[in-house]
């Protein structure tokens, strides 16, 4: 119990950030026309690709003799990049269709 409290105390700034972000996420999304649900989901999908940053840290800090970390790190960089690049490009393609047509 004490350990848990200490953990919360040490990370209190992160926890604030976390809670504020939860409310911000709800606020930002709440009035979306249903037409935009799919592109929005796809855009959000690309944004969580930020996990690539973690993959870069894993890969970058893998010691040369730690083959597990090297291999997994490499795989995770590829996976993360796929998520980011694919996500943004697909979203852009969807939104391209929404551009205003000349009447």
């Amino acid at each position: 119990m004490e350990q848990l409290l200490a953990f919360l105390g040490e990370n209190i700034r992160f926890i604030y950030l976390l809670i504020l972000m939860v409310f911000l996420g709800i606020e930002v999304i709440s009035h979306v026309p249903s037409v935009l649900h799919t592109p929005l989901m796809s855009g959000a999908n690309a944004i969580h690709g930020v996990v690539i940053v973690g993959a870069i840290i894993v890969m970058g800090k893998a010691e040369p003799d730690n083959y597990l970390a090297l291999v997994l790190g490499f795989i995770s960089v590829i996976l993360g990049t796929l998520n980011v690049v694919g996500g943004f490009v697909v979203t852009d393609r969807m939104l391209e269709m929404f551009k205003k047509k000349k009447k």
Partner: peptide
């Protein structure tokens, strides 16, 4: 921070969506 904010933002926005 950027992973935390990006992740949680999508987590909560995604749930609402």
């Amino acid at each position: 921070q950027v992973m935390l904010t990006g992740g949680i933002l999508v987590g909560s926005a995604g749930t609402i969506l």
